[in-house]
């Protein structure tokens, strides 16, 4: 399989070429174009209960689409995410990574999608009560709104709520006020997430709250 992230940060998309017999799993609705003879199969996302939980709690869909190349030659397709923004690829070798609700885009066979309880801290911080847990061996593609930046955390770091996209299991989330009581509520920052531990986090450079804060005053 060959996969490439193309397009600019604003409108990234994933171009996948499947060799005969290969398949790729994608969030339902992610396919934007494909060779006509690729086979599509909708698969319940890890069983009915798990799928339903993922749909309602982690912002993913009940079904995922499996695209399989049953032809004797290579076939191509493109996958897109719903929000404007960047896409990232992540190779896993028997390890685990946490994605924020809605960030999952596609993966290779061999990647297991699960639902993890992210904790009330995550929920109050606007990051969702649950998170998508990707594990196994293979590649997973995820995306978010804005450009994506990597940050290696060793110790503590503060991320405004709704900017966190993905993080390694070594990272724990804590909640705190952005400043003093007055500042936090009148300064527009409110609660922020304090990430602690050692590992990589991925941050999106824009947030939905930032977008609405910009555009809402202009709407009549």
């Amino acid at each position: 399989m060959q996969a490439q992230i193309r397009g600019s940060d604003a409108f990234s998309y994933l171009a996948v070429t499947l060799e005969p017999g290969e398949s790729v799993i994608a969030e339902s609705d992610a396919m934007s174009s494909m060779a006509a003879d690729l086979d599509l199969q909708a698969r319940m996302n890890g069983g009915l209960i798990a799928g339903l939980l993922r749909k309602y709690l982690a912002g993913e869909s009940l079904f995922v689409s499996v695209f399989k190349n049953n032809t004797p030659a290579a076939r191509s397709m493109t996958l897109v995410q719903p929000t404007p923004g960047g896409i990232r690829a992540l190779d896993l070798h028997n390890d685990t990574f946490y994605l924020q609700p809605g960030a999952y885009l596609a993966s290779t066979e061999g990647i297991k999608l699960g639902l993890g309880f992210a904790g009330f801290v995550s929920w109050i911080a606007g990051e969702g009560l649950f998170r998508t847990v990707v594990s196994g061996s293979g590649t997973v593609w995820y995306g978010a709104y804005g450009a994506l930046l990597d940050k290696q955390v060793d110790g503590e770091y503060i991320v405004d709520s709704s900017h966190l996209v993905a993080y390694e299991p070594g990272i724990k989330l804590k909640l705190q006020l952005a400043g003093g009581l007055f500042s936090s509520f009148f300064g527009g920052e409110g609660l922020v997430t304090r990430v602690t531990g050692r590992g990589r986090i991925v941050v999106q450079t824009r947030s939905l709250t930032g977008l609405t804060g910009w555009i809402n005053p202009k709407l009549r």
């Binding site: 600019s8 940060d9 604003a10 404007p84 923004g85 960047g86 804005g146 450009a147 930046l149 940050k151 770091y157 503060i158 991320v159 405004d160 900017h163 952005a178 300064g187 527009g188 920052e189 922020v192 941050v203 450079t205 824009r206 947030s207 709250t209 930032g210 804060g213």
Partner: peptide
């Protein structure tokens, strides 16, 4: 980073220095 689509500013503040920021624009620190 992320320019020109979603430009993101990271400023290194030396000790005993401060910076004024538009309300609600802080993303990480």
């Amino acid at each position: 980073d992320g320019a020109p689509d979603f430009a993101f500013l990271t400023v290194q503040l030396p000790a005993n220095h401060s910076i004024k920021v538009e309300a609600a624009a802080m993303a990480t620190m």
